[in-house]
Computed example of a mutant assay.
Amino acid sequence: MTSQSMAAALARTMGLTYAELLRTASVKRVDVSSLAALAHAIRLIDSPDSPPPHPEDLPQQLAALNEHRHRTRLGAVLRQLPGVLADGTNHAHATQSPDAWGRVADTYSVVYWLAARHRWMHLAELAVMKQRLAAERARPIAATVAARDEAGAFLNSGDFAGGLAVVDQAVVEAESTLRGRDRAYGLGILHLRGLTLAGRIKDQRTARRHVDAAWRAAAEFPADIADHGIHFGPENTAVHVISTASDMEEYRDALETADDLLRAGTSLPATRIGPLHMSLSRSHLALGDRDAALASLEDAWDVAPEMARVHPTSQELVRVLTSLHRRSNPRLTRLAKRAGVTF
């Protein structure tokens, strides 16, 4: 199975972007108008319209949007994003409140997340640029979240070293600007991004540095929290450590850590548990256990079907498993059909 670091190298050799090699996910016909409306709302950051009549509803609207995100309801996120972004931007221009601009920045974080899931990289990069602009008018934590997402755009484009540079600079800034809970949370999400990036280039020393720092930050939280639409705490740190262990081909360590996490039970949402099962499927497959790999991939589809449909790891796992099976397997046939992969 091709690693993401190898895929990035292949893309450079072939003169392709990382997203082109992994293939951009298509938009359903019913969602084309929502994507056009989102593009219009993005332009409003410099050209505001009338403020919304009920600004008191804006926090609840953003919370509902993030709930769809956490449940990996990608279609619902796309349909609701244009209105939430437009109303939030217009209100922020009308009030110039740091909290209002913070909500705009958080909404652009959702735009980035949706674009990254579909590998719409031009939109993802535009989203983090606009997120940065909004964060400049918000409280300091907004800039930290924006840097985390900017590093994510580097990650999704296959520029892992560039993403690490963004993380390192953001860590220095966060250490000087953030205090209390915001400081622990902000540094935590940055170090999670850092360990993921380091794992993709198999930089064990840098990955270990970010792992240790993430665990120190996670120790400040007895349970995972979901600030600014992003989860952080002991459980999500464990999920990232598992994924990075798989990236660095430490497959048994990944499976053992996952056993401990799942046996204890987790409160994390589908947006984190789906990728966890994909990581476990990768590790099982690398160790030659196709049945366990299929079972973990089925778990990923059961927990987060809309994400699994567009996620490159899920798609590649289905293709590899179908190519390895020489005889009919009803479970794999059903999964391949859901993924749109010919078996």
Rank of each mutant, 00 (worst) to 15 (best):
L187Q: 10
L195Y: 03
G199C: 08
V171F: 07
D159V: 11
E175A: 14
A147N: 02
E173P: 01
D168C: 03
T144V: 15
G158C: 08
A161D: 12
A184K: 09
G162K: 01
D168L: 10
A184V: 11
L133V: 14
G188W: 14
L178G: 09
L192I: 08
A143W: 00
A153V: 00
Q131G: 01
I189H: 12
R179Y: 06
G163W: 03
A151Q: 05
R148I: 03
V171N: 08
E136F: 07
E175R: 13
R193C: 11
L178I: 08
R200M: 13
A143M: 11
N156W: 11
Q204N: 13
E173D: 10
T196Q: 13
I141D: 00
R193I: 04
V172G: 02
R200V: 05
K202D: 11
Y185P: 08
E150P: 00
E175C: 05
V166C: 09
A134P: 09
A135W: 03
D168E: 15
A146W: 02
E175T: 11
V171E: 13
A184P: 03
V171T: 11
L190Q: 05
A135I: 07
L187T: 10
S176V: 08
S157Y: 00
A134K: 02
N156F: 14
T196A: 11
V171G: 03
E136Y: 08
G158S: 06
P140T: 07
Q204S: 10
V166T: 14
V145P: 00
A143L: 13
L133P: 01
R179S: 11
A147P: 01
D203N: 13
Q204K: 07
D168T: 09
T144F: 05
L197R: 01
L155H: 13
